[in-house]
């Protein structure tokens, strides 16, 4: 099995090299290519740095309890010389990689609820497409300012939002009853059967309009917003909220990713090292998490996000 992992890493790096090879030809100025005006770093420099940074990001995201996409977009757009459009396209795929890996398992475990996910996904993915189109149409500095503000908002949300494992839902609302959004799951550790239902469905669906637009516009993934809305507003149990949110991401982010892909904003030379880095980092993070969860990491992550948010905001203002 170890050999298989090595094979995956080898293939990832190999693919990265193949994709980057033409760039090598350009960077070294092949026989007929004009001589470059300025001496930049070699072609492998940025993919390698991206791989290293995303690897650490993967570990921190898992230990800090946030999605990889949330860290990726502000940090890479703030500190790397890539255009925001490419970073957002890449961020969506980074968020998607975790969601697609988790989806089948969460559905099989009966934790991701299709009844809850489908109506929400319909709204969120439609809005994610609109958000992606808006994000690509608006001037970059405006998007950068909005991104900075959103990131700072996420920090506030991370600091203040309290989760409720089993919210008290007295009576399901009419819309959720009509759509039959309720379910049952078995608590793995205790074997207890948990019946759940939701309320405030219209408000929750309206909030998903905003979440969808932001997910598409910034390429952040949207777990940070999905979970509080599903859990605190709509009253779904935390386990169902986390699982359904991750499953939802695979639908909404896919919709938005197509727009970025169609506009040529997905560069394999950025995506491949980032995906390989973040997945390997997450793998290590999950292993570390099984042993310990240092509380300080969450504070470091919030601090990093706040700093990246302020940087994005100032960058948008041209300061």
């Amino acid at each position: 099995m170890k050999t298989r992992w090595q094979l995956v890493i080898f293939l990832g790096l190999g693919l990265c090299w193949i994709i980057a090879a033409p760039a090598l030809g350009l960077a070294t100025g092949g026989p007929s290519a004009p001589a470059p005006e300025t001496e930049g770093p070699p072609w492998w420099f940025w993919p390698l740095i991206l791989f290293a940074v995303t690897f650490i990001m993967g570990i921190l995201a898992v230990l800090g309890g946030v999605g990889g996409g949330v860290l990726f977009v502000p940090i890479i757009s703030g500190f790397f010389p890539f255009h925001l459009d490419f970073v957002r396209g890449c961020g969506l795929l980074v968020a998607l990689s975790g969601a697609l890996a988790a989806g089948p398992g969460l559905l099989k475990m009966n934790l991701a609820s299709l009844r809850l996910a489908i109506p929400v996904a319909l709204i969120a993915s439609t809005c994610a497409i609109i958000g992606a189109m808006l994000g690509l149409a608006l001037p970059t500095n405006i998007v950068q300012i909005a991104l900075g503000l959103t990131i700072m908002g996420i920090c506030v949300l991370m600091l203040t939002a309290r989760k409720s494992e089993l919210p008290d839902v007295q009576k399901p609302d009419r819309l959720s009853s009509t759509l039959r959004i309720y379910g049952v799951y078995q608590e793995g550790s205790t074997g207890q059967i948990v019946d759940w239902k939701i309320h405030r469905t219209p408000l929750g669906l309206c909030l998903f309009v905003l979440i969808g637009i932001m997910a598409g516009m910034f390429g952040l993934g949207a777990g940070w917003a999905n979970v509080p809305v599903l859990n605190l507003v709509m009253g779904a149990p935390l386990k169902i909220s986390v699982a359904t949110s991750k499953f939802l991401l695979s639908i909404t982010d896919t919709s938005a990713a197509w727009i970025y892909l169609n506009q040529g904003c997905v560069i394999p030379m950025m995506v491949v090292p980032s995906l390989v880095g973040i997945m390997l980092g997450s793998f290590v993070g999950v292993r570390v998490l099984a042993v310990t969860k240092p509380a300080v990491v969450r504070w470091i992550v919030i601090g990093m996000l706040a700093f990246a948010g302020v940087k994005a905001f100032l960058k948008g203002l041209g300061i």
């Binding site: 309890g65 988790a102 398992g105 475990m109 989760k163 986390v242 999950v286």
Partner: peptide
Amino acid sequence: RSLGVSLAFAEGDAH
């Protein structure tokens, strides 16, 4: 798949 499920709960701050 198992990594994905663990990731979902870890990233949702509900490991």
